[in-house]
Design a protein around this nucleic acid. Structure first.
Length: 924
RNA sequence: GCCGAAGUGGCGGAACUGGCAGACGCGCGCGACUCAAAAUCGCGUUCCCUCGGGAGUGUGGGUUCGACUCCCACCUUCGGCACCA
């Protein structure tokens, strides 16, 4: 027996990596004779150490890129670094190293670690966002956006991270406590003059995913983030004659608007506040401003607000309604003002009840009961009998009958009620809003009616005198509570000429009605805000703007780019941009008038750098533009993009916006930058907790590579979980993958220990499994199902081991099997595949070989297991040739002794036959 | 509260078109080799059982000859949003 050399990844892996690099094996050049495939994995931040998460993102992506290459595509799979950003500055503060030095030495280290992965990166295309040759073009894009009015500067309340000492985009503020996405510190509000990109201009187009093959999850996240809502703008006016516009999604409830609420910051507040309310309003505004957003938006917080003394006119019914201010109305959404319809909006309902504002129902509840609480003391005994005889009284509580009525009982009830009332009144609420008095019936249909009803019942019952509105009285009858408020669609009531409008057409009909009268129109509103890109930090691309006292905001001329970052700065965090504290850098001359001027000292959000890195990869050294148009036309768009889902509402929305804006400026082409997106999951620590240094559960890929070799790590990462889900790490699990590779090695290289002559069946079975595996591995790579790629290969190996034992070694079928096996494993485990390929004397390199084709004939099964069920339960199995007819299958099933026993003479009711699978005998 | 996803052995997972539930691997058990260990190999491994079977894919219903797969309701976990008018 010949023993082969043992499998030594630490020897073969560096050897092949060096050779591939020397031979330029992964250089990706334009080749018009081939179909291109641009595979991109998200740009890593050079934090200093490649962690297992990087491997998890990149190694399976690399395997797939390699697979595409073997399938005949010209594949571009580039790598680079998102090299600007805060950690470099934090390290500078902590260790006294310059951010640039820290960053570039980290990059050096990570390049080495990345090379140990054996990935097919084309390093000639590496791009580093902090290189002046890179950020020159980041600045150039800024200027283009500025020129096309897509970048603008404004004073605004912005989110500020006190830990990072900088402003953040809305997308970078996370969670209920509104913390900084990077460091977890709760943010505060600051009023600052900042630069924004007009991403909101693209809100509608960003909702269109029809050109994208992206996970549903990401599309839903982005859709929710953009937050489209349809409704109407309605023009109310103040008594002073100012227009007061509101956005509403429920124009059908307009007739129920009984007051208005402005955000405390609303510009009209000053003007409408009357002298006697001035002090109270000023105090409230101040209080609101002092509160953090977290306090202000804390849920479950009781509503607060104050009356301004001012009044508005509801344009649909000319009702005079009070204007309040309250912090539950946000200046940043809609117009910063709302019409309050307390009967059909939970927040307004709560507010109205608290402050005694009238509540008028204007939408019929689709299912509500008609409820009435009838005090015995108000009515005759005959009437009580009437209620009981007709089963209207369902209960009794403290001398009051709890009545509920069907629609067809109402008329009869009203007649009896008026006769039965000795004094007092009877109300019906829910699907009706009637107050029946002996002499008349009133309906709660307007503010006026609310006052009349309240006045009458207060005259009758002194106990109701503390109530400020009719609804407040009703609310204090617990029996009514569930029918007093609802936010559903329904038929319009109490709405003047539009009363009776059906729920399903109400909104559209009201909008048309408003439009013909010129008091409102349809309007779509978005939750999305413009992208705040100013950062008060040093290590970023300077915003290429100059402020001149004579010429105002002046863009740096393109030919003066890049605006270089000075290297001699103080980085100690002060809350001001370090560039502002530099003794000379900010002082310059105006490009327009030549007079003294100052540079913008803020730098750009690093998401700006990563919005276009996929373009810089195309031609990282090109200096006539951000990218070489020829490269663009060949490679773009990105065909598959892989990375984590955490960027769903940040990078992935920014880069889509960026592409669309550039398209409209004539720079890029096509609807989308990245066609197919796939997300990998997260690897947890072995304790099922999130990996972190403090928990001590971090898995270090360098150590794994040293112990097992890169191929084992790559294969294990592909195998151990569904790629899109991730799972806890297992240090015993990886042993299984290591065993698999050792077994491959031994199976292919070692002489067999058997004298057996392989039977034709053995060889046939071997070939069948080989070709079936080509089919499944190909399909699984296409679908990013990497775990089953590896398990199929393991299965095939098990069959090969059996075949070898049975004497297949050395036969043509065996040679074919190992040839195909190595090709199939080459994308996942490139080094061992290359080494074995080499040892077998096959032509270098396996990675330039074509992907194997399925021989359909060989893959065909000859026999199959016919499952025999009785009443859907498996009772027996029998082997049949694939060619067996329905009759043969049914006969085989019915002849089965087990079936005979179960049938015990009786005839089957039905026999169901599924070709190639089963026979199901139904016997009752 | 709203939106979304996921629940399958001790664990990661497979079952891709409604048709054998648990592929592949980990772990575990027994055995072989060995003075011994490591490595390797073989067998077993969803649960219950009176050895005939029975139960079983989060729970409860439904559709179907047949449901992990389709429908309805619910529970749990995770993610996102959150006074967005």
């Amino acid at each position: 027996m010949k023993r082969a050399q043992p499998y030594q990844p630490s020897e073969i892996e560096p050897k092949w990596q060096a050779k591939w690099e020397k031979d330029n094996l992964y250089r990706s050049l334009i080749d018009y004779s081939k179909k291109k495939h641009y595979a991109l994995t998200m740009l890593p931040y050079p934090s200093g150490d490649l962690h297992i998460g990087h491997w998890y993102a990149m190694a399976p992506s690399d395997a797939r890129a390699r697979f595409m290459r073997m399938r005949g595509y010209n594949v571009l799979f580039p790598m680079g670094f998102d090299a600007f950003g805060l950690p470099a500055e934090n390290a500078a503060v902590k260790h006294g190293i310059h951010p640039k030095q820290w960053t570039y030495s980290n990059i050096e280290r990570m390049r080495k670690q990345l090379r140990s992965m054996g990935a097919m990166f084309d390093w000639e295309r590496e791009a580093i966002s902090s290189d002046p040759e890179y950020y020159r073009w980041t600045q150039w894009f800024f200027l283009k956006l500025f020129k096309h009015d897509l970048a603008y500067r404004k004073m605004a309340p912005v989110d500020w991270c006190p830990q990072c000492n900088t402003t953040l985009a809305r997308e970078q503020v996370w969670g209920e406590d509104r913390h900084c996405e990077r460091c977890g510190t709760p943010v505060i509000k600051k009023n600052l003059e900042q630069w924004f990109f007009r991403i909101t201009k693209y809100a509608e187009e960003l909702l269109d995913f029809s050109h994208l093959d992206w996970p549903e999850r990401v599309r839903v996240l982005q859709t929710n983030w953009i937050g489209r809502s349809e409704g109407a703008m309605v023009r109310f006016s103040t008594e002073q004659g100012d227009d007061l516009e509101v956005f509403t999604t429920r124009p059908d409830t307009l007739w129920g608007a009984t007051f208005m609420v402005l955000a405390p910051e609303h510009p009209l507040v000053e003007k409408i506040t009357t002298p006697e309310h001035r002090e109270e309003v000023a105090e409230y505004v101040l209080l609101t401003l002092r509160q953090s957003d977290i306090q202000r938006e804390a849920l479950g917080k009781e509503k607060t607000g104050v009356f301004t003394g001012g009044y508005a006119v509801n344009p649909v019914n000319n009702e005079r309604i009070p204007i309040w201010i309250a912090d539950y109305v946000l200046m940043t959404y809609g117009t910063g003002a709302i019409m309050a319809v307390p009967a059909h909006d939970e927040r307004d309902f709560e507010f109205a009840l608290k402050f005694g504002l009238p509540i008028i129902p204007v939408i019929q509840h689709p299912r509500a009961l008609r409820k009435s609480l009838i005090r015995r003391s108000f009515v005759t005994e005959e009437f009580v009998q009437y209620l009981q005889e007709n089963h209207m009284a369902k209960g009794e509580d403290q001398g009051a009958l709890e009545v509920s009525l069907e629609e067809d009982q109402i008329n009869d009830f009203v007649v009896h009620a008026q006769r039965g009332l000795t004094h007092g009144w009877i109300e019906i609420v829910g699907a009706e809003w009637m107050f029946i008095f002996p002499d008349q019936t009133l309906t709660l249909s307007s503010i006026q009616a609310d006052r009349e009803i309240l006045a009458r019942i207060q005259r009758i019952d002194a106990a109701t005198r503390s109530y400020r509105t009719t609804m407040e009285y009703l609310w204090n009858q617990p029996y009514y509570r569930d029918v007093l408020y609802h936010a559903e669609y329904g038929d319009m009531i109490h709405s003047g000429e539009l009363s009776g409008t059906k729920g399903e057409e109400a909104i559209q009909k009201v909008i048309r009605w408003l439009e013909t009268r010129g008091i409102g129109q349809a309007k779509v509103n978005y939750r999305l805000r413009d992208w705040l890109i100013s950062r008060q930090r040093y290590w970023g691309a300077p915003i290429p703007i100059i402020y001149c006292s004579r010429c105002g905001i002046v863009p740096v001329p393109e030919d003066q780019l890049p605006v270089l970052l000075p290297e001699d700065v103080e980085w100690l965090p002060t809350g001001e941009s370090p560039l502002k504290l530099h003794p000379t850098w900010r002082f310059t001359s105006c490009p327009t008038c030549g007079g003294p001027a100052e540079r913008e000292t803020d730098t750009m959000d690093t998401f700006m750098c990563s919005s276009w890195y996929h373009l810089r990869y195309l031609s990282p050294k090109y200096d006539q533009g951000p990218f070489d148009p020829e490269e663009y036309d060949y490679w773009m768009p990105v065909d598959t993009y892989t990375g984590g889902i955490e960027h769903a509402t940040m990078h992935l929305i920014y880069t889509r916006f960026f592409h669309k804006a550039c398209r409209d400026m004539g720079i890029t082409k096509g609807p989308e930058p990245m066609i197919q997106l796939r997300n990998q999951g997260i690897i947890l620590g072995e304790d099922s907790e999130k990996m972190s240094k403090s928990r001590g559960n971090v898995v270090a890929p360098d150590e794994l590579v040293e112990k097992y070799g890169a191929d084992t790590v790559r294969a294990y990462l592909m195998f151990f979980a569904r790629w899109d889900q991730g799972a806890p790490w297992s240090s015993t699990g990886i042993e299984g993958t290591a065993r698999w590779l050792r077994k491959v090695w031994a199976t292919i290289l070692e002489e067999p220990q058997t004298q057996n002559q392989a039977s034709p069946e053995t060889l046939r079975t071997l070939r069948r499994k080989v070709h079936q595996t080509i089919r499944s591995v190909t399909r699984d790579y296409e679908q990013f199902e990497f775990n089953t790629v590896i398990s199929s290969l393991m299965e095939l190996l098990n069959v090969m081991v059996d075949a070898k034992e049975a004497g297949a070694f050395g036969t043509p079928e065996w040679e074919e099997a190992i040839d195909i096996y190595l090709r199939l494993m080459a994308p996942a485990t490139p080094h061992i595949a290359e080494e074995l390929w080499f040892l077998l004397g096959k032509p270098y390199s396996i990675h330039t070989q074509p992907w194997p084709e399925v021989d359909e004939e060989a893959a065909k099964e000859e026999m199959f297991t016919l499952v025999i069920q009785i009443n859907g339960r498996v009772r027996d199995r029998v082997e049949l040739p694939v060619s067996a007819s329905e009759e043969e299958a049914k006969r085989a099933a019915l002849e089965s002794p087990i079936v005979q026993k179960h049938l015990s003479g009786s005839a089957p009711k039905q026999v169901i036959y599924v070709r190639g699978r089963l026979v199901n005998i139904v016997v009752n």
